[in-house]
């Protein structure tokens, strides 16, 4: 005779579930819920180390890439060290061999560091910029200028001062594109005026508020650092204006004699990247500040209309300060005079 417990257990297996009217039947014991739908499959971990091989050349490339990725590290010393590594790596690469990473991918990662809060990082960045192959810079002038302008309007005086170094480098490396890119001429000049505290001609009839405080700014409530900064701004402005306004004669390409083409330069291969950028075929529509001003005459016209008055007035008052400021102002004046000699004013 089996125990009652055993009997019960046996009975359990054959018990029928009670059905109730109006209620859905209970799920079976082995029921599997398949109603969910996966939106994504997440793998636990992916190793990058497996992709690296022991080869020394690729190893170097990997280290290069590693340091590029470290540029966004939160510690400033790490950023600086990575920049230093990249600087030496680029400097030691012979000009014939390509860089481990092309400039086009490198620059977007370097640009944000223009606004870095640590002076040492910025100094190192400038060194790195100087060793970059100069031929590749013009294509990226527009982006670089965007960041340079962000640095020029930055709230920290240090970064504003640093932006001058960057701008000087850019004007030296890509003199044409630094002034001709979209928005380069008008917006950068406006930033300069803001830096120097010179009032641009207000397009609307907005009443100038607190004009005296601007004068106080140029006069320098704290003569030391302020005057030094202003001198630097003026020097950079001079270089920028010279690049934009003064005509340069470039050596013409040797072309085979005897081909009687009247407009030969027009049929040349363009020497610039994105030669038809000024047509703006694909981008969003530009406002007038963002126009591409490739012709020197256009730049002269805009300079005369919008900036010349303010620049000349500011220059005069600056020259009166004398010393370093005066010298900078004189250099600026020379640049403006050189640039605007052949401008025909319609008066």
């Amino acid at each position: 005779m089996a125990s009652s417990k055993k009997k019960k257990e046996k009975k359990k297996d054959f018990q029928k579930a009670k059905l109730k009217v109006g209620k859905t039947a209970a799920k079976a014991d082995n029921f599997t819920d398949t109603s969910f739908r996966a939106k994504a499959i997440v793998l636990g971990k992916q190793s990058i180390s497996a992709q690296r091989s022991a080869d020394t050349s690729t190893d170097q490339a990997a280290r290069f890439a590693h340091h590029v990725s470290l540029l966004r590290h939160r510690s400033d010393t790490q950023r600086q060290e990575s920049l230093a590594y990249l600087t030496t790596a680029i400097a030691t690469t012979p000009p014939t061999t390509p860089l481990p990473e092309p400039v086009a991918t490198l620059l977007p990662k370097l640009q944000p560091l223009l606004l870095d809060g640590t002076p040492a990082v910025r100094r190192q960045l400038l060194k790195l910029l100087h060793v970059l192959p100069a031929a590749e810079i013009p294509a990226h002038a527009e982006q670089l200028l965007l960041y340079a302008r962000a640095a020029m309007t930055h709230l920290s005086a240090d970064i504003r001062l640093f932006s001058m170094d960057v701008l000087d480098w850019l004007v030296a490396a890509a003199p044409d594109d630094a002034v001709a890119a979209a928005g380069a001429w008008v917006k950068t000049l406006r930033c300069f005026l803001g830096l120097l505290g010179w009032q641009a001609q207000a397009p609307a009839g907005a009443a100038p508020v607190g004009g005296w405080s601007v004068a106080a700014k140029t006069a320098g409530s704290r003569p030391g650092s302020e005057a030094k900064a202003n001198a630097k701004y003026a020097t950079s402005l001079a270089a920028f204006v010279r690049a934009g306004l003064v005509a340069v004669t470039r050596p013409r390409l040797e072309r085979p004699q005897g081909v009687p083409l009247l407009w030969a330069p027009q049929y040349d291969l363009p020497r610039r990247a994105n030669a038809f950028a000024h047509l703006n075929l694909f981008g969003p529509p530009r406002d007038e500040d963002n126009e591409i001003l490739e012709d020197r005459e256009d730049r002269q016209r805009i300079f005369a209309l919008q900036f010349e008055g303010a620049v000349r007035a500011g220059m005069e008052s600056m020259k009166r300060e004398g010393g370093e400021l005066g010298r900078a102002a004189a250099a600026l004046r020379r640049a403006v005079e050189d640039g605007m000699t052949d401008y025909e004013r319609d008066e």
């Binding site: 302008r149 962000a150 309007t153 930033c191």
Partner: peptide
């Protein structure tokens, strides 16, 4: 000054 900073950041 703040507004200019904002503007250049916005363009970025």
């Amino acid at each position: 000054a703040q507004y200019q900073q904002y503007d250049s950041f916005r363009q970025l």
